[in-house]
Design a binder for these strands. Structure first.
Lengths: 294, 294
DNA sequence: CGGCGGCTTGATTCGAGTCAAGAACCGTGG
DNA sequence: CCACGGTTCTTGACTCGAATCAAGCCGCCG
């Protein structure tokens, strides 16, 4: 079997290669070994499930092209999108590591998708043979987890406008990382609603606001970002959590008005109004931890 | 070095051992090797940070006793708790796997805590030597991730009452899993608020409702669950995502009124009112995917 | 042309947040 | 043993963001 690496250019395997490399798999031997185990599966079209909820079918799934989303449902059918996935992403590592647990998760195609699969036993074998591959996949999982956390922070604590703005920023950044530089994001307002934990109607109104602010394009139904700067500013977007060493420079902290001089303030700042709200004013804790050291 | 496994009974290492075993580390050799690398660190008292936000200090942290929480902050200081942690849990695996990325995450002690640490290089060495340990830790991360997802689903899509109920159920189940069988949960209303993405005031009112329903104890400030059944019912709690094979039987799906006959309904159900809301009615997609297969 | 999916709008309701006090409780120290 | 000070919990009044309900519209695809 000749080197797939050399043979079939970036067309199909490109994104996966890039992803694996960015996760720390650098030897061509390993990359080639992985590619050799990947089988192409029939594509999935927009709207269909790539990974159905329920038991794992014995293989891991890789998104080779297109956009997908990882989602779960409430008992009433209500959907929550946990994260979007792009070319090169593994769709269902959870099922590989904890096969029993995550029956309540599924992956749906948001655009038509190309899918690759790799048998779980092949994967295990590969990991056994190349420990660094195991680490890379662990990293991939962690990266996804850090997306979950970020989303949780935003859904739990941000108003609609910044929540949506952040979501859009994240998508722009991640698309860029896989070479999609168009300012247009191929999501429907419903997708956004399900990801942001908002109703469609309210997403729509939020969009109107974003358009009014000249951040989103005013014409056409597509979601087209015309002012990334302001968008990132609005969302206080810091792409650091996405762990993309590459072309990330300009996605760094762009606070508009907010303070936050150093990263996260440390305890013992100049105490101010010490009212008891949630845990909002860090001051609280700051003061607290100063005093509590007894 | 004699076997710590044999020597220092369950007092200190017990929870960690139990955790590792539940993650699939079964050989005593491996367990012993791990324990031998763990150093005891000064405890942390209620309110202090166990893991400060920012760069990793070169070691991984294990919670040996007490309750902690993994949290992040918005720029305005607003806190979101991502997950609670119990004895035996690793606090900061993220920093081990993706050291650069997750500066925006920290761990705080919710009760006084006992802490163990293990140098990153020791950990790497151990993983290299015992691949199954690497897998176990990967599993641990995934488990945490599945907690994030569940929380995201609830925060994004559930009203306060069930959100809080679910949160409480999760804590009960997880405490049980580490041998804490008391019906009392040592959290403050503020902690709950930060975890549920609600304001303290509203948490308080939700509590009043839960008490009125005779689900929470009426007297005393502590959060004491007097009717787990109803609580779980209210929350439609299914502990499956926690991956606890043990005493989990009674935490299974306990739907009160809701339908959901089989797990997650499959496509092609009897179509009903096909209005376009979010993606609420699964019917939508059901119908969709039936039709879209062209 | 018809029909459906996705986008818009307006009216209305309601859950949850904010503000502002006050009460209960707990650990501490006299 | 009690008084003090600070968290934590409660309550009430009021506001506001977001959901819901209900149409209507637009553009695409068969």
């Amino acid at each position: 079997m000749t080197s797939l690496l050399k043979r079939s250019g970036p067309q199909f395997f490109g994104p996966l290669l890039q992803k694996l490399r960015s996760l720390g798999v650098d030897s061509d031997t390993e990359l080639d070994a992985v590619l050799n185990r990947i089988k192409v599966r029939a594509g999935t079209r927009r709207g269909e499930d790539i990974v159905a909820p329920g038991r794992s079918p014995g293989h891991a799934t890789v998104l080779m092209d297109g956009v997908a989303c990882l989602y779960g449902r409430l008992h009433d059918g209500n959907r929550q999108i946990y994260a979007f996935q792009y070319s090169g992403d593994f769709c269902d590592l959870h099922q590989h590591v904890l096969p029993e647990t995550n029956n309540e998760v599924a992956v749906a195609a948001i655009t038509d998708c190309s899918i690759g699969i790799i048998e779980h036993k092949d994967l295990e074998q590969l990991i056994a043979q190349y420990p660094s591959l195991g680490l890379a996949l662990w990293r991939a999982s962690m990266l996804e987890a850090s997306i979950f956390r970020k989303r949780l922070l935003n859904v739990g604590r941000q108003p609609a406008l910044q929540r949506v703005a952040h979501l859009l920023c994240e998508q722009l950044a991640r698309r860029e990382a896989v070479g999609l530089n168009s300012a247009t994001i191929p999501l429907t307002q419903m997708d956004l609603a399900d990801a942001a934990g908002l109703s469609i109607v309210h997403i729509n109104r939020t969009f109107q606001e974003l358009r009014r602010l000249n951040i989103l394009s005013k014409e056409g139904r597509a979601i087209k970002v015309v002012d990334r700067e302001r968008l990132a500013g609005l969302a206080s977007f810091d792409g650091n959590y996405l762990n993309m060493p590459q072309l990330l420079s300009h996605w760094q902290v762009k606070i508009e008005s907010a303070p936050t001089p150093a990263e996260h303030r440390r305890p013992c700042h100049p105490p101010t109004s010490a009212t008891r709200l949630c845990s909002k004013p860090v001051l609280q804790e700051a003061i607290g931890s100063c005093r509590q050291h007894r």
